[in-house]
Design a binder for these strands. Structure first.
Lengths: 198, 198
DNA sequence: GTCTATAAGGCGATAGAC
DNA sequence: GTCTATCGCCTTATAGAC
C-alpha cells in the first residue's frame, strides 16, 4: 500500500464516482469530501471538470485496454476468453459499472475528445473479440451462428449491459449468461449436431 | 394529429428528455421551455421531479411491453423476432436510447418504486425472448450455443447496449449485429453442419 | 391552470492570503 | 499546494395573484 499524492487520490475517486453515479451525478463537493480536501484544491490539479473527466477516461481506458493487450494470444482460445472476462466478472454486482458504459449514456454532455476515447475503447475490445472468435472458428473447433465481428459486437454489448443489470438486480451472476455465450463460442466442446437433443 | 393537453405534452417531452439526457441531465427549465410554459406550471401537474419520473417510466414501460405482448405468438418464430425488433431498429442511431436502459445507468438516484418498474421491464422482455428461443429450439429448427434463458439475457443486453453504441457512433446499422444474432437463433435456415464452411 | 416572484441551497469556478 | 471567501448562475420547489 503505497501513499498516493492528492492528485492520484482525486483521480482514483473520480474513477469510482463516475462509475457509480456518472459524470453528471457527482460534484466537486462530493469528490473533495471523499479525498479530504477543499473544492478549490481540486481546481488546482484539474482546472475544470472536463479536465478531470479527460484524465479519468484516459486512465481507465489505458488500464482496461492494457489488460486486454496483455493476454497471451498463444493461449488456448478458452483460456484467452476467461482472462478477458476476468475484470467483468470481478465488477458485476457491485455499485460501479464500466466507466465507458456509463459515459456512453451521457454522450450529450461530453466533449468530442472524450467521444473519441470511448469509440476507441469499443473498437479495441470488439476487434480483440473478433480476432478470438474468428481464430476459434477458423480452427474448425466451433460453429458460430453469425459472423465473428457481429458476434463480437453483440457479446461486448451484452457484457456492458450485464454490469448495469447485475447492479440493478444486486445479482453478480447476471453477467454469467454472456460469459457462457463467449466461452461456448470459442470452445470446441461436444458441439451438438443439428437435431441432436440439448 | 390530435391536440395534446399540457399534461400530455409535459409527459411526452419528459420521455424524450430522459431518453436523450437522462434523469439528472435535464431540468424543469429545459422541460418548460420545450412545452412553452413556466416551471411552476410543471409543479402543478407533477408536484416533484420524482412524480414526473414515475409517470414517465410507467408510461414508457406500458408502451413497449404492450407492443411485445401484442405480438401474435401464432406467427413463425422469425416473424415474431422481426416484430419484436421493430422499435429497436427504428430507434437506433438517433439521439435517444431506451428509457429503461438510460435509467438503469442512474439507479443510484432513483427511488425504489422506479427500480421495481425497471426490473419488471427486464424480466418481461427476457421472458418473452426466452419463450421464443425455447420454442424455436424445441421445434428442432435451431441449435442454440447456450440455454434459451441465458441467450435471451445476452440478446436483450446487446440490444440495450446496441442503442447506446449506435448513438455514440452515429451508426444505426450498429444494432444489426444483435438483430442478426436473434434472427439466426430462431431461424431453421440452412444451419451448417459442424465443419461445413461458412 | 398558469402566471410572477422568491426562497434556499447546490453548482463550477476564481481571487488572493498563507 | 491548500486554504477562506465569494461570485454568478442553476436547481427544485412554494406562495399567492389572476
Amino acid at each position: 500500500m503505497t501513499t498516493q499524492s492528492v492528485r492520484e487520490q482525486l483521480l482514483e475517486h473520480t474513477l469510482l464516482l463516475v462509475r457509480q453515479r456518472g459524470f453528471n451525478g457527482f460534484s466537486y463537493r462530493d469528490l473533495a469530501e471523499r479525498v479530504g480536501v477543499k473544492t478549490s484544491s481540486i481546481h488546482y490539479h484539474f482546472p475544470s471538470k472536463e479536465d478531470l473527466l479527460q484524465a479519468a477516461v484516459t486512465e481507465y481506458s489505458a488500464r482496461i485496454c492494457g489488460h486486454v493487450r496483455g493476454i497471451d494470444t498463444g493461449l488456448p482460445a478458452e483460456a484467452q476468453a476467461r482472462a478477458y472476462l476476468e475484470p467483468w466478472l470481478a465488477t458485476a454486482g457491485g455499485d460501479a459499472i464500466c466507466l465507458v458504459g456509463m459515459l456512453s449514456a451521457e454522450t450529450a454532455f461530453l466533449p468530442e475528445g472524450v467521444h473519441r476515447i470511448l469509440k476507441d475503447f469499443y473498437r479495441l475490445n470488439e476487434a480483440w473479440l473478433t480476432r478470438l472468435l474468428a481464430s476459434a472458428q477458423a480452427a474448425r473447433r466451433t460453429l458460430l451462428p453469425i459472423p465473428p465481428q457481429a458476434l463480437a459486437q453483440a457479446v461486448f454489448g451484452a457484457l456492458q449491459s450485464g454490469l448495469v443489470v447485475a447492479r440493478l438486480f444486486g445479482a453478480p451472476e447476471r453477467i454469467e449468461a454472456t460469459a457462457t455465450l463467449l466461452i461456448a463460442s470459442v470452445t470446441p466442446s461436444r458441439s451438438r449436431a443439428p437435431g441432436e437433443p440439448a
